[in-house]
Every structure is written in structure tokens, then in C-alpha cells.
């Protein structure tokens, strides 16, 4: 029996040390040495202070900013301390209500907005923290943002184009616009 019990107990210690201490510490060491910015949360730093993460979206409902995806985190949207999707089924009436409320808010902020709204702008992301919208969703909001800021539409559109990322390595994923980066750039534009 000891032939089984000893290795079973010792293996607890051995494998915990090997895969639970040595391995993660090695990865941390390499990561902090080669990719410190990424390993620490891809922070956007302004004036020496972190003002957000490139990878984590923030909530916007002011008409002069671009708005992101809906977010199902609680108690407030884009609460990064508690990531969550809505988990609403396609047949759940709450899903339809959520989309209708978003469309109404978009219309209220810009009565002239087109009738047909891009899907990503009316749905909640999986994480509740999606930092991106589609180029179509950005274009949908260009008129509103330009008007509310009193700047030329073409200027805003050019900024959107500058912040549109193509597919990674030409093939992977989808074209994206980073909402927080775009809005930060808009605020900088005003100061010039």
C-alpha cells in the first residue's frame, strides 16, 4: 500500500512546485522582461498616469463621443472588475427590448441617423468589455459626433479611418475601431 500512498502524497508537492510555482514564475519573468507593457495590461498612459487600457472598453453615452457595444456587466456597464455577457437567448423578449432601447437612444441623439443600425451596435458583447466596434458602427455615428462637436464631418471620418485596424495578418479576425482610443483622439483634436 505504501507503494501507492508515498508517490501519491509526494507527487502533490512535486507537481505543485513544478507546475504551480516554477512554471508561472518563469513565464512571469520572461513576460516582464520582454513584454512588460502587454504583461501589465496594455495601459494607455497620459502625463505619467494610466488613463485606461487599450484592451478594455469604457462606457460612453454622451452624443459627442463614439459609443461602443452594449455591456451586460453589473452594476454599471463596462465594469471591468466583473466581466459578463448578457446570456440572453435569441427568443428572450429582453434581447429585443435591449436592442430597441439602443436604437431609440441612437435616434434620440441623432434624429437623422440611418434607419438600419449595424448589428454590433445593438448587441451586448461576450465579455461586456469589448473595446471595439465595427467600421460600419463608427460610420453610423460620424455625423452625430461631428455635429455635437461642431467640427467638420470629413475630419471626424478621417480620424475614424486612421483608427480603423484591418484584419490581423490580412486574414484573421475582423476589421475593428478601438472606441476609447478614437474618443481620446477626438478630445485631443479639439484642443488643437
Amino acid at each position: 500500500m505504501m507503494k501507492i500512498i508515498r508517490p501519491a502524497l509526494v507527487s502533490l508537492v512535486v507537481f505543485t512546485v513544478l507546475t504551480g510555482i516554477i512554471y508561472p514564475l518563469t513565464v512571469t519573468g520572461i513576460a516582464q522582461l520582454i513584454f512588460p507593457a502587454q504583461a501589465n495590461g496594455s495601459l494607455i498612459v497620459k502625463g505619467g498616469k494610466p488613463i485606461g487600457s487599450e484592451l478594455i472598453g469604457q462606457p460612453f453615452d454622451d452624443p459627442k463621443y463614439f459609443w461602443g457595444r452594449l455591456s451586460a456587466t453589473s452594476p454599471f456597464p463596462y465594469n471591468a472588475a466583473s466581466s459578463s455577457g448578457s446570456n440572453l437567448a435569441q427568443t428572450n423578449p429582453a434581447l429585443l427590448e435591449q436592442a430597441k432601447a439602443r436604437i431609440e437612444a441612437l435616434r434620440k441623439a441623432d434624429p437623422q441617423a440611418p434607419a438600419s443600425v449595424p448589428a454590433d451596435l445593438t448587441t451586448a458583447s461576450g465579455s461586456g468589455l469589448d473595446p471595439h466596434i465595427s467600421p460600419a458602427a463608427a460610420e453610423y455615428q460620424v455625423r452625430r459626433v461631428a455635429e455635437n462637436r461642431g467640427i467638420d464631418e470629413a475630419k471626424v471620418r478621417a480620424l475614424v479611418a486612421a483608427y480603423t485596424e484591418p484584419r490581423q495578418l490580412w486574414i484573421l479576425g475582423e476589421p475593428t475601431v478601438n472606441v476609447l482610443n478614437l474618443n481620446l483622439a477626438l478630445d485631443d483634436l479639439k484642443k488643437e
Binding site: S86, Q90, P118, A119, S125, S127, H132, S134, A136, E174
Partner: peptide
Amino acid sequence: ASDLQPGGNMEGKELRFG
């Protein structure tokens, strides 16, 4: 779906993945 948006059932999905 178009070149400018993934379209489809985006509820619960991340835009970068489509």
C-alpha cells in the same frame, strides 16, 4: 455581413473575433 461589419448574431460575441 460586409467588408465593414461582421453582421450576424453578435449578441454575446466579441467584435475582434466576429
